[in-house]
């Protein structure tokens, strides 16, 4: 099993993501360079957090035209598991692989803290190791994490069980529509989320609530129902 983590210029969670894969999944974790249109036979791909291209134009807007993104798109369209975390979520939205977009936090502040998330739909391959309604503690660290989409899209996400995670509490940390923290695509193989599960895989760092996400893709690949 080979798991690829894409490094864009300005990615800064790529090492954390690689480390989390190595800690949680029995397999090989490799870096993929944004400028190379080659997934090197990866069985699953992570787009990590950071500030690709300095967030120039819009967060994720430049990264999504990187050579590797054409390969990621083809892989995703063929049912390959793809997860975008934080900046990776922004890139997936910019690429049109997930609906909606992420704009500046309502507070205008960079939000960096631990938050409580509620697990919503668990039908997708990424969510299979969570229980619906389960409460997780996972860190966030973003300035542009306010999820927006038109009402029809939001309704469809809810009715088709594609909201993966929601922020808990009275107000979301960034003003996201319907407190949405993470969503999946229609086929369930592409996940985007603003919180950082790769920073929640070690009890020493305060939480292991991110582990099931990595184990879920491992189970999926082991079951041979991947590509």
């Amino acid at each position: 099993m080979k798991i690829g983590v894409v490094t864009f210029p300005g990615s800064n969670c790529d090492y954390d993501c690689l480390h989390a894969v190595e800690e949680t999944i029995g397999g090989q974790a490799i870096y993929l360079w944004h400028a190379e249109a080659d997934l090197q036979g990866s069985d699953a791909v992570f787009l990590p957090g950071g500030f690709s291209y300095g967030d120039y134009l819009r967060a994720g807007a430049i990264a999504r035209v990187s050579p590797i993104m054409e390969e990621v798109r083809a892989f995703a369209n063929a049912g390959g598991p793809v997860a975008g975390i934080c900046n990776g979520f922004q890139i997936l939205c910019e690429a049109g692989l997930l609906p909606g977009g992420l704009i500046r936090n309502r507070s205008l502040r960079f939000a960096s803290r631990s938050v409580r998330l509620r697990v919503e739909a668990t039908d997708s391959l990424w969510m299979s190791r969570y229980e619906a309604g389960q409460v997780l503690r996972v860190p966030i660290a973003h300035g542009e994490g306010c999820y927006v989409a038109d009402e029809a899209t939001l309704d469809e996400l809810e009715s088709s069980a594609r909201v993966a995670f929601r922020y808990m509490g009275e107000a979301s940390p960034n003003g996201s529509a319907r407190n949405i923290a993470g969503i999946v695509n229609e086929a369930g193989n592409v996940l985007g989320m603003m919180p950082h599960p790769e920073r929640a895989v070690d009890a020493l760092l305060g939480s292991t609530d991110g582990v099931p996400l990595f184990r879920a893709v491992e189970s999926h690949l082991n079951a041979g129902v991947g590509r």
């Binding site: 134009l57 807007a61 035209v65 910019e94 977009g101 927006v148 989409a149």
Partner: peptide, 8 residues
């Protein structure tokens, strides 16, 4: 295609 995001 690039300079504006049609969603936002």
């Amino acid at each position: 295609r690039l300079l504006a995001n049609p969603v936002t």
